[in-house]
Amino acid sequence: MDITGTAQHEAWRARALPPVERLREDLWSVPVPIPHGGLRYVTAYVLALPGGGLGLIDTGWDSDEGWTALSDGLAALGGSVSDVRGVLVTHLHFDHLGLAGRVREASGAWVAMHPADAGIVASPVHRDPAASVAAEVAFLVSLGADPDEATADVGPPEHHAPFSRMALADRLLEDGDVADLPGWRLRAVHTPGHTPGHLCFAEERTGLLFSGDHVLPRISPNISTMHNGLADPLRAYLASLAAVAGRGEPTEVLPAHEWRFRGLASRTDELAAHHEHRLAELLTAVRGHPGSTPWELAAHLTWSRPWDQYERRMRIFAVTETDAHLRLLASRGLVVGSGSTVPTWTAAVR
């Protein structure tokens, strides 16, 4: 894999925000900061349209700092938010969809997503912070969490209010659709796994691939179960990896985080191997601790820090990721769930 976003990579190593970059005559990258967590920023891609106007791929986290970064980035390339005609959203997460509503208010731009993610954002549970919290707590309890621990990890409804107000989609993009941005041939590639409706965009004139969070150059995107998600998200993700790699090598991969690169097939192979290693580690944990819940099994896996330091959203991601791997092991016939309200897992007898 070759790093092509050298300025992004250098900024990452310096723990700094990378610069606004002109990637082609008609294409720029604008970093929009994320206020917490390890990802630091999301890259919004700005596309010039013939005859005037701009298109966006992803918008950034909805905060005043993020809005300023996006506005200043557009100004640096000679435009403004009011020039935006359309917003393509790779997936429903707040660092990608968050600012779409403010962009639409300032410009009248349409917002497009895959129907699976658009449906989640528009669902009554998602639009109601209290209902959203209750659903997530109940889901974690179904994975073996103590109700009080689950409630503490999820947090109060007021913390979820910003997510409930995210922009609803004006347009839906199915797999294979071409986005309505004149001068570009951006074909939607449905890549479920990270979210049910994750989209990559393959630009057919230039050979560029805007990969969202589906393929990142350094980290593996979180693949987790959700109360309103896919039944077997890891199986969907691995199939999506193979499908993207099978499209052939793009001229460059433009991800939503970290840095641009070449060598898609090599990176998809690495990501698939990572998950196979994780599946093997989890199967060993199930054999060593039969009758355990996903919540319990997560504590027996290798993480980036000691398990007792995991709490809140980090612990939720770890447990739901463990559950996603268990479901794939089950679909391969390697583990068996108890079938109770809170399933416990044992290795299948072979």
Rank of each mutant, 00 (worst) to 15 (best):
D2E: 15
G5N: 11
Q8A: 13
Q8H: 14
A11V: 02
A11I: 01
A11Y: 04
L17G: 10
D26P: 06
R40G: 05
Y41R: 11
T43K: 13
V46A: 14
V46F: 06
L47R: 05
A48G: 14
G51C: 03
L54F: 10
G60A: 12
G66F: 09
S71M: 04
D72I: 01
L74P: 10
V81M: 07
G86M: 04
G86E: 07
G86H: 15
V87P: 10
L92V: 05
L92F: 06
F94Y: 13
D95G: 11
L97M: 06
S107Q: 09
W110M: 00
A116N: 00
A118S: 01
S123M: 05
R127Y: 12
A131G: 14
S132R: 15
E136K: 14
V137F: 02
S142C: 08
E149L: 10
A152D: 15
D153M: 03
P156G: 07
P157I: 02
E158M: 09
H159L: 15
H160A: 11
A161V: 10
A161H: 14
A169S: 08
R171E: 13
E174F: 00
E174K: 02
D175E: 01
D175H: 12
G176Y: 03
V178Q: 00
L181D: 02
V189I: 03
G193T: 00
G197C: 02
H198W: 01
C200T: 02
F201I: 00
R205N: 10
T206D: 05
T206E: 13
I223T: 03
T225D: 08
H227M: 06
H227S: 13
N228R: 12
P233Y: 04
P233M: 04
R235I: 00
L241W: 01
G246N: 05
V253A: 05
F261H: 14
R262L: 09
R267S: 03
L271Q: 09
A272S: 15
H274G: 05
H275K: 00
E276D: 14
E281F: 02
A285Q: 11
V286A: 12
G291H: 08
L301S: 09
T302E: 15
T302C: 10
S304V: 09
R305L: 09
R315M: 03
R315P: 03
R315V: 04
A324G: 10
L328E: 15
R332Y: 01
R332L: 12
G333H: 03
G333A: 06
L334Q: 15
L334M: 11
S338F: 09
S338G: 10
S340D: 15
P343M: 07
T344C: 13
W345E: 07
T346D: 13
A347F: 08
R350V: 10
